[in-house]
Amino acid sequence: METPSQRRATRSGAQASSTPLSPTRITRLQEKEDLQELNDRLAVYIDRVRSLETENAGLRLRITESEEVVSREVSGIKAAYEAELGDARKTLDSVAKERARLQLELSKVREEFKELKARNTKKEGDLIAAQARLKDLEALLNSKEAALSTALSEKRTLEGELHDLRGQVAKLEAALGEAKKQLQDEMLRRVDAENRLQTMKEELDFQKNIYSEELRETKRRHETRLVEIDNGKQREFESRLADALQELRAQHEDQVEQYKKELEKTYSAKLDNARQSAERNSNLVGAAHEELQQSRIRIDSLSAQLSQLQKQLAAKEAKLRDLEDSLARERDTSRRLLAEKEREMAEMRARMQQQLDEYQELLDIKLALDMEIHAYRKLLEGEEERLRLSPSPTSQRSRGRASSHSSQTQGGGSVTKKRKLESTESRSSFSQHARTSGRVAVEEVDEEGKFVRLRNKSNEDQSMGNWQIKRQNGDDPLLTYRFPPKFTLKAGQVVTIWAAGAGATHSPPTDL
């Protein structure tokens, strides 16, 4: 069977082979063929449309019947899901209200924590001031004790010197008594010597008188005998007598002179000795008097100093007792304040721990409710997609609110971060928990396990030699990294520990 286009092609070929045509004729024939082709295509399209309309009418009838069946089946399910969705919305509203209440309680707890922290800071300042005052008082007490020990040692030294001076005074008084006794003995010996000298002088005078009498008696006897002796021998006898008398007189005078000289010499020697002894004793007595006077003056001065030191010692002891009493009071006050502060800190920690436990429990309940609501929403969306139902505006708002919801909680030295990733086909969620104590904190952990970043959050360098970082993902083997023995993380510095297959460059001390 030939198509209209094939017939047109045969006809035009025959005409062209029979007679030659002009260009205008050819153009018109071409346009006519195009119109015929378009008409044929339109006829085919109309036939196809008619057949499709016939099929569409049958399909519409089948769809109508199916919609009636589906509407009867879905009406009950939709009512049940609407009821469950209403319950879920009520639960979500109650959870939102509970969350708002918990946020209010958390803000209240934070305000109480700030207030307690301020009070604690003030108490710590008072405690530091009390400890500083206690240290000052202890230093003052130590200085006073040192001064007291010095004063006591000086007192003992002065008492020793006073005892020595008293012994010296006793010795000097004994020496003075001995000197006085020697002086009295010398004076007695001097008086005795003077008496003996006077006696010797009297004896000498008496001997002179006796010698004169004997001489006169001898002259008288000789004169008497001379009268009786011969005149011839008188001159010879007289001359001999005169010579004998002269010789006797000379001898007697020599003896008297020698005895006189010896007596005067002895007397002068004894007198000089007595005078020297008297002068020496008088000098000793003067020196003893002077030394005794000086000793008395020094004793008086030392007694005055001793009394002054005793007064100072009594004042120091009184002040020391006052300082000890004040120190005891300060210690009791400090202990009482410290006990009160520790009790308040313990109560505050217990209260904060209780509130944190309650908040953690409520947060766990909220997370469980969020997971249940998310599961209900997934089931509802799956059924709506299976039944090709359009979601209600309320469910769209709930989905938008659930997809944009995120929370971040800080308290008790722990930080909890939650992130949620969404897509049109599926939804997944993960959470990161970080707890830090000390100078070094974990700043970031790569989700794909490529690196771990640490930061020194203090103002001092931290030695991290032979420290270890351990990481384990589920049931995978435990991964451990040990820092070099001499590694030190500077204040405020960040160090990144890269995985072996991350392709990073080893560049200490920032990249390991």
Rank of each mutant, 00 (worst) to 15 (best):
Q234N: 13
R235E: 04
E194T: 00
K260F: 11
E257P: 02
D272W: 00
F206K: 02
L245D: 05
R221K: 12
E178H: 03
E178K: 14
K270E: 04
V256W: 13
R189P: 02
E236K: 00
L271C: 05
E253Y: 03
K181Y: 11
R196A: 01
Q246S: 07
Q251E: 10
K181C: 14
D205I: 02
K201Y: 05
A242W: 05
R216Y: 15
L245N: 02
I210A: 03
I210L: 05
Q258V: 14
Q258Y: 07
R225M: 10
D192W: 07
I229R: 06
D254E: 15
G232I: 01
D185I: 11
K265R: 15
L188P: 01
G232T: 06
M187H: 05
L183T: 02
A193Q: 02
Q251I: 13
S239W: 13
D230G: 15
L271N: 05
K208W: 03
K219Y: 10
G232P: 08
E217M: 08
L263D: 01
R216D: 00
Y211H: 01
R190G: 13
E217C: 00
Q182P: 04
A250H: 04
Q251D: 11
K233P: 09
V227T: 04
E238L: 12
F206V: 02
L188S: 03
G232D: 03
T218G: 12
L248H: 02
E223R: 07
Y259G: 03
T218A: 10
E213Y: 00
T218Q: 08
I210D: 00
Q182I: 04
Q207S: 07
V191N: 06
E178A: 05
R196K: 07
Q182V: 12
K201S: 04
V256E: 07
E194C: 11
L197Y: 12
N231K: 11
L215G: 08
R235D: 05
S239F: 10
A242Y: 05
L204Q: 04
M200K: 05
A242L: 01
R220P: 11
G232Y: 09
R221Y: 10
D243I: 11
Y259P: 04
Q198Y: 08
E223V: 00
E203H: 02
M200A: 02
Q255E: 12
V256T: 06
R221C: 08
R220S: 04
K261Q: 15
Y267G: 01
N231E: 10
N209P: 02
R225P: 10
R216K: 13
A244T: 06
E228I: 01
E262R: 03
L197P: 04
L204Y: 14
D192M: 11
S268I: 13
L271G: 03
Y259V: 09
F237Q: 04
F237D: 07
K260I: 11
E262F: 00
R240M: 05
K260R: 02
E223D: 10
E178S: 00
R196W: 01
R220M: 14
R225D: 12
E236N: 06
R190T: 10
E257V: 05
I229S: 10
D243F: 15
L263I: 13
L241G: 10
Q182G: 09
K270Y: 00
L263N: 02
E238T: 04
I210R: 10
D254P: 03
L248N: 02
K270I: 08
R221G: 03
Y267P: 05
E178V: 00
L241M: 01
E236R: 01
E194V: 08
D230F: 12
E214H: 01
T218N: 14
K181L: 13
E217R: 11
K260A: 00
F237V: 11
E264P: 04
T224E: 09
V256H: 07
D230K: 14
E262N: 11
N231G: 08
L226C: 11
L215I: 15
Y259F: 12
G232E: 03
T224M: 04
D192A: 02
Q258M: 07
G232W: 11
E223P: 12
R240F: 12
D254V: 06
E178C: 14
F237S: 05
D192V: 02
M200T: 03
K233T: 14
A250Q: 12
Q258K: 12
S239V: 13
L271Q: 04
A269V: 08
Q184K: 08
Y267A: 00
E223N: 05
Y259E: 04
L241A: 01
N209F: 04
N231V: 09
E202F: 05
D254T: 13
Y259S: 02
T199I: 02
M200F: 12
Y267K: 04
Q198T: 07
Y211W: 09
K180S: 02
Y211G: 07
F206A: 01
T224I: 08
N231H: 12
I210P: 00
E236I: 09
R221A: 11
L226I: 12
G232S: 06
D185S: 13
L248I: 04
E264D: 03
L271F: 06
D272C: 03
K219C: 12
K201E: 10
V227L: 12
E262K: 02
L183A: 06
R220A: 14
E228C: 06
M200E: 02
L245C: 03
D272E: 07
L188C: 03
M187C: 10
I210V: 13
Q255D: 11
A179V: 15
E217F: 09
K219M: 14
Q234K: 12
Q255C: 06
I229H: 03
N209K: 06
D272R: 07
L204R: 11
F237R: 03
D243R: 11
E257W: 12
Q255V: 07
E253V: 14
K270F: 08
Q198V: 13
V191R: 07
S212R: 12
Q255S: 08
A242I: 01
E238G: 06
N273F: 04
E253H: 05
K260G: 04
Q251K: 08
A179F: 14
E247P: 05
E257L: 09
M187I: 11
A269M: 15
Q182Y: 09
D205K: 06
E257G: 07
R220W: 01
E178G: 14
E264W: 15
A179N: 14
K219T: 14
A179K: 12
Q234V: 13
E247D: 07
R220V: 12
K233F: 05
K208S: 05
E214D: 11
E236F: 08
